[in-house]
Design a binder for these strands. Structure first.
Length: 383
DNA sequence: GACTTCTTTCCTGATT
DNA sequence: AAATCAGGAAAGAAGT
């Protein structure tokens, strides 16, 4: 049964319209004013995705990670049209993914899910993500946290843990490439995801210098699952890390115990974190609570990492606890940060009254009297 | 260099 | 069962 691509494109459109009749437009990046350095493109095939001058759809303007399901559908439809692909071959179920889920898929998963269109979609997604990564103005100190957010979220690699469809789990096991990468680097680096220390119990310098290669497989969190979601986000309560766990546990069991305390900083960072000259009395930089605050007071930049439970009282909740931890780790040039560790630091704030306990509520904290800059008045005054 | 502050890491046990 | 919380202990990093 063959259906023309245009016909199925129409089907896609119809379904699209029926399913998402009133879906609001996605958040546009707040980087519209940033001049984007045109990347050197070699392949003409890249042009359709990357041409800024033409408008293919809202998805084109948005980091794929933030795509809505409608964006994803539009994007697939675009490629169906352009490649004259027989859309009847597509499993519609796989067209109803949001951007975050899509970005979590491995290359193998793309091939499995989208068949012959998989390669094209995968490459398109990769290019689009790269494009949006490059849009981030890294030099803007005002947006340090946002820069991290943007980098971080935009760099989520093609890792199959975002799948919620259990039926897919069999097909998207940790790829051999990723395993090999991990093996060869001795877990020594990896953007914000490498939680496993080296065999000596400490991290060492990075062997990965290419942020792209990093983004392709290093977002792994062996020691703790990504709570990319919470009890308040049932759609995220899925099997995300179930694949990695057995693999990870196996790796852990082979390691020596790590001594207590913080490991010495021996090339702790990796090449993603170019050393900057610090003046002798450079400020220590943002503290954890300030970092958390900065995420919270920029809701449009929050990207669902955290939310206010009670804005006036300063009660907030981690929605994607591990993602926030990764981000914090990235800021601190510590790729092994986890929510568990971050939360320990958070708990120390109770004593200093920077935070107050919120009993009985998981992932919920409250700013204390010694925390500043979070109140509406403060924010309004630009404090 | 000593001291202090702020984490970071590990751990055990409790709770959800 | 797993995730999270709680908090002690030890140690590193960086500012003073």
């Amino acid at each position: 049964m063959a259906t023309s691509s245009s016909e199925l494109s129409r089907i896609l459109s119809n379904v699209n319209g029926a399913v998402y009749p009133a879906e609001p437009p996605p958040l546009l990046p707040l980087l519209n004013t940033v001049t984007f350095p045109t990347p050197a493109l070699n392949k003409t095939a890249q042009l359709t995705d990357l041409s800024f001058g033409t408008t293919l759809g809202p998805w084109q303007q948005v980091n794929p990670l933030f795509w809505t399901k409608r964006n994803v559908l539009d994007w697939i439809e675009h490629h169906v049209d352009e490649s004259k692909y027989d859309a009847s071959l597509l499993n519609m179920e796989y067209c109803y993914l949001d951007g975050a889920t899509l970005c979590g898929l491995s290359y193998e998963a793309f091939l499995t899910m989208y068949g012959a269109l998989g390669e094209r979609l995968y490459q398109s997604l990769d290019r689009l993500r790269l494009k949006h990564d490059m849009q981030c103005d890294l030099s803007d100190p005002f947006n340090e946290t946002y820069t991290l957010l943007n980098d971080f979220l935009g760099n989520l690699p093609h890792f199959p843990t975002f799948l919620s469809d259990e039926s897919l789990l069999d097909t998207v096991v940790v790829s051999e490439d990723i395993k090999r990468e991990r093996d060869s680097s001795h877990y020594s680096s990896g953007f914000a995801g490498d939680m496993t220390p080296m065999s000596d119990g400490y991290e060492s310098g990075s062997s990965l210098s290419d942020s792209h290669s990093c983004s392709m497989g290093s977002f792994m969190n062996p020691s703790s699952p990504d709570s990319t979601g919470s009890e308040s986000d049932p759609e995220y309560m899925d099997k995300r890390f179930s694949i990695t766990k057995s693999f990870i546990k196996q790796e852990h069991s082979e390691q020596k115990k790590r001594p207590r305390g913080r490991p010495p900083k021996v090339n702790r960072g990796n090449d993603h974190y170019p050393e900057t000259k610090k003046s002798k009395h450079a400020p220590r930089g943002t503290h954890l609570w300030e970092f958390i605050r900065d995420i919270l007071i920029n809701p449009e930049r929050n990207q669902g990492l955290m939310k206010w439970e009670d804005r006036r009282d300063g009660v907030f909740k981690f929605l994607k606890s591990e993602a926030v931890a990764q981000l914090w780790g990235q800021k601190k040039k510590n790729s092994s940060m986890t929510y568990e560790k971050l939360s320990r630091a958070m708990r120390y704030y109770y004593k200093r009254e920077i935070l107050e306990r919120v009993d009985g509520r998981r992932l919920v904290y409250k700013f204390g009297k010694n925390a500043s800059g979070w109140k509406l008045e403060d924010v309004g005054l630009g404090i």
